[in-house]
């Protein structure tokens, strides 16, 4: 199935953009995770592994219900469990962690392979694993530490936002399964509207710092989160101010053009030099070496 709704494509110049005839009526979508409703049941994590046929190995208990310990090539959605002590009471905070589907995706910017990462007109970011070479540039650039490289097939994997479901009008499998209504999916506009109402409600109930996590540093995300305390996203294992990393920007926006210019300039200079100055040949019949002193004498004659 040819994809014709691609608004950004890794390793591709603007002169030859990806096919985008079918971006016309497409609205931006979003998944909303409401941490204030989540009860940590892990149904989403299981649904993800079910729908995508992923089976991460059963790990070992390490003092937390979080398992596996981190996202992996076989685990694209992971429930994170953070134990918080609040006024002498223990409280759990759950984070539905998966790809954030950044509007300005660092992974796509860093990718070294044409078309291995694409962004669709609906705003979601997808990996075309068949093209992927497994260099891992996406994994090191992502400010949320999401893509993981499989040692089995050298490919990068992460949440697709169920692009194979949403393409035919279904919601992502995690959203479909969520037992509490903490996960929602819809147009970005609707989700922003809903989130605003929900945050207002939380504030009215006494959660003064409740707010929406939709970080500006990456242009906003197509997975947004509602937190009890928006000033402390780290307590949900989320970065405070995620950005496209500086090293990625320097490499792609500065090193490439400047380095290429330097390379071409050097080669051009070398060629011009060869043509203008000409050959550098040794006259083999010129007097051979005697020794430095005698040679000098001879020269001065």
């Amino acid at each position: 199935m040819a994809e014709q709704d691609i608004i950004r494509r890794s390793g591709t110049t603007d002169i030859t953009p990806a096919s985008q005839a079918r971006v016309g009526g497409v609205k931006k979508v979003a998944k909303l995770f409401d941490a204030t409703k989540c009860n940590g049941c892990k149904a989403c994590q299981v649904a993800c592994s079910e729908w995508n046929d992923l089976r991460e190995e059963v790990g070992e208990f390490s003092g937390s219900y979080q398992n596996p310990p981190s996202l992996s090539p076989e685990c694209w959605t992971l429930m994170k469990y953070n134990e918080i002590e609040d006024a002498g009471k223990l409280r759990w905070q759950f984070t539905h962690s998966a790809c954030m589907h950044c509007a300005d995706p660092a992974c796509l910017k860093a990718c070294s392979t044409a078309g291995a990462i694409i962004q669709r007109a609906n705003g979601t970011v997808d990996f075309d694993s068949d093209k992927c070479i497994g260099c891992g540039y996406c994994a090191s650039a992502c400010p949320f530490d999401i893509p993981k490289i499989s040692a089995k097939d050298n490919k990068a994997y992460k949440c697709t936002l169920c692009s194979d479901r949403t393409a035919v009008g279904l919601e992502p499998s995690c959203v479909k399964t969520c037992t509490t209504g903490a996960l929602r999916y819809g147009t970005r506009e609707d989700m922003l509207f809903y989130a605003e109402k929900r945050v207002e409600e939380l504030k009215a109930r006494g959660y003064k710092n409740a707010g929406l996590y939709n970080p500006e540093g990456v242009g906003g995300t197509a997975m947004m989160m509602i937190f009890h305390d928006i000033n402390d996203p780290e307590s949900y294992y989320m970065p405070k101010d995620p950005q496209v990393p500086m090293a990625t920007e320097i490499r792609q926006d500065w090193l490439k053009p400047l380095g290429t210019a330097g390379l071409i300039a050097t080669a051009a200079f070398a060629l011009m030099h060869r043509i203008t100055v000409g050959r550098n040949i040794v006259e083999e019949d010129q007097p051979g070496y005697i020794d430095a002193a005698a040679e000098k004498e001879e020269d001065s004659k």
């Binding site: 994994a139 650039a141 990393p245």
Partner: peptide, 10 residues
């Protein structure tokens, strides 16, 4: 660390 790898790449 991811950022170490990223700088190494640069």
């Amino acid at each position: 660390e991811a950022s170490t790898v990223n700088w190494a790449t640069l």
